[in-house]
Design a protein around this nucleic acid. Sequence first.
DNA 1: TTGCGAAATGACAACGTTGTCATTTCGTTA
DNA 2: TAACGAAATGACAACGTTGTCATTTCGCAA
Lengths: 333, 333
Amino acid sequence: MDKKNVSMNDVAIAAGVSLKTVSRVINEPDSVRESTRDKVHSAMEALGFRTNFAARSLKLGRYGCIGVVLFHLSGGAVDMIDGIADAAEERGFALTMIKKRAGEKMTLAEAARRMSQLPVDGMIFNLRQMVDDFDTFEAPKDLKTVIITPMEHPTCSTVSDDQEGGARMACEYFLNHGHKNVYFVSGKKESLSSQCRMKGWRAALEARGIEPPEPLQGDWNADSGYAAGLVLADKPDCTAVLAANDCMANGVMMALRDKGLSVPNDVSVIGFDDELYKTIPNSILTSVKFRHRELGVRALNEVVAGLEAPSSRSRTLVSGVLVERSSVKDLRA
Amino acid sequence: MDKKNVSMNDVAIAAGVSLKTVSRVINEPDSVRESTRDKVHSAMEALGFRTNFAARSLKLGRYGCIGVVLFHLSGGAVDMIDGIADAAEERGFALTMIKKRAGEKMTLAEAARRMSQLPVDGMIFNLRQMVDDFDTFEAPKDLKTVIITPMEHPTCSTVSDDQEGGARMACEYFLNHGHKNVYFVSGKKESLSSQCRMKGWRAALEARGIEPPEPLQGDWNADSGYAAGLVLADKPDCTAVLAANDCMANGVMMALRDKGLSVPNDVSVIGFDDELYKTIPNSILTSVKFRHRELGVRALNEVVAGLEAPSSRSRTLVSGVLVERSSVKDLRA
DNA sequence: TTGCGAAATGACAACGTTGTCATTTCGTTA
DNA sequence: TAACGAAATGACAACGTTGTCATTTCGCAA
């Protein structure tokens, strides 16, 4: 027959000491005589005392929690959350999470309003698609806000993979291996990742004075890559294909093969995310890999660093890595 | 030059009403005259008032948050979290999350201790591997606790995919199509999913009086499936292979093909998770799919339902679905 | 033994909200 | 206009913790 909630006062009475002494045992044990400390500890144990989060944070004026708003929950998001959560643990923070419901249209302002009523000292928005009030949004002045997004924001700190840079890197890799042009298969139109990857591809070609060919529209899945591959197989000038993810890259490769072409002998291919090896044995696909985990870690660190100065603003880019396999042929000499 | 924290008292003064009236405007607006309500609303707007979570929950004795402990963050976990988060939104709860750090060894007791110091009314443990104190663990008596795990727990409610049932279903599908035996490729040894799938496979065979052949050990990735496939290709009695996930199933299929065997003409294959179609164009793999999202929804609902009676206990199984494609040949007649 | 400074402990207010109960104001009817 | 019940508002305590400052107890030297 335990009491509903055991308070520090109950412990104090049981241990025959004052309320404040119990508080001290918890927060500054060294300032309490050992014998007293033991009495208090036994009392806590016996009554099953647990500090009350609400009262504690009310008094302290902080929560020890970072808010995470998931506007979108995709594959790469797992690793990112993993990074956020690990970094949070390390720094003694817990996470408070809310999520955009499917179908619901959530603005940044709406998300901030809801988050700021929850136990959070700062917040991270994971934003992979455009949102109406992106440019006009202003974060609460007392709540450090970091947005994970490839777009620059006028007032908030942002963290992002360098998707554009990754695409440029892949493109240059083709060009440096003697390819004269690079075709592109995009992901879903509304995806910012896809847009950035396309932008980088275009920029790399134009930097060398090459006119980018019409990009092929995909939807991230293998079948759309396959369809694109069938089209590309008929283009005689197509020696290099950059697909916006590995699944579509695989679709492209399968289509090329079905059309009697060989990768990399006839056509070279690069994908994104480096995950094909999980599904395809002996995968040969060269791929641009982003460090999603690192992205999460950076975002969290940025929030924590900004807790004291919420209005500070920074922009962090996490570079990608080209994982080389054998899907690109060297055409030089 | 705003005040650090705007309290209801500040709003009350600005609006020329009492503190309690402001509280009423927020919690029971109908009991306040419209003209008063407007004054208060303007004052709140002007001062940028936001209700203080700590004070509110201290008074109410509840948080409106459900704790989620991630012992393990895998692929399927995304959908599950998605389900938990959506269901939480729907019922007006936020999520508080902590995660086992890589390498760290966290027991249930340890997780419960940490969670119970955070703002939570109940908790969900996502547990995909065995943990030392599983059988002896007792949840805090005032905090409804639900464990997502295929194992039964003596005192806590549990929710799980029916992995064993799914494996049995796949096996029976083979047998009903005239196969006389089924080989099995497992996932990582320590994975409970893998163990359950293996158990179901074994049970289905034994129920028909068939001696299960030695299972082949994999590690979830395609390469291990490929290795298993090479072995299986040499077994003349091998007409059916159940692989513990789609990636390994694909590895098996590639190995069989490389050995000159055809799927499904020579050997039939079934996988788990139904995700190969994302990566392989025109995928033919029949697969057992679990509804991870539904799993999360059930877990959250179970917690919320048990908030008033934390010591209640239930066991929920979410059945799997066999997604039929053409990787299984009918050997009858 | 006495006196002293340091160490240990305690009393009390405060954090910002909501519940209880008392008081004021309103709209109606006599 | 007075009187009345209902609606609207307010005063004050309480939730469980920590900070401030006062008080008690301790160990040690004179």
